[in-house]
Amino acid sequence: MNWEPLILTFKLALVTTVLLLVVSIPLAYWLAFSRSRTRPVVETLVSMPLVLPPTVLGFYFLVAFSPGNAFGSWLEESLGLQLVFSFPGLVLASILYSLPFMVHPIQSGLSGLSPSLKEASYVMGRSRLTTLWKVLLPNIRPSMLTGIVLAFAHTVGEFGVVLMIGGNIPGHTKVASIAIYDEVEALNYGAANFYSAVLFTITFCILLVVYLVNGGYLKRFWR
């Protein structure tokens, strides 16, 4: 059996999730607490991947990053980045595609906290950053876990965006969901079933763990 597409899938999901967490915390903080007029616009943009067909996103990526146009060739010449049909391109597309799944839980976690927690910390002389790190984030651990897992699982399940911008290069951009499609087209139902069953089992386990943790079922084992 060829494990390569599966390994690539989880590598992509892992890298995407880590980067997404770094990006989403400041973004969710801003969305939760800012009273800026541009907030609704940003909020809409973050939510767009929920409703757009992934192919739309993929198509624009393909156009934007193609070495055939100005932006794409600038990226390639100045930064040496080739984002079309490459792993870094997949990561970037996945980050945007899974953005709402990470941002929304963190944002609602933050806005669900009593404002007095933040204010108490400020009055005690602590900066915004310290407050975020030491008071706010530790109190929205369930929301962060939800965000991390949803983003991870969503990236694992990606198909349209990957197909558009990644293509089907074994070892680089051929993730499991594409491999399944490929095998079915080639009438290799056995291989397709293998990839599918592995994805099914792993994602089931991940989600189960989240619900167990957030539902408090595992508490007695560590307290």
Binding site: S114, S116, L117, A120, N139
Partner: peptide
């Protein structure tokens, strides 16, 4: 400042 809801850090 003592807040009406005490604002103790739960964690």
């Amino acid at each position: 400042f003592v807040f009406q809801d005490y604002a103790l850090f739960p964690h």
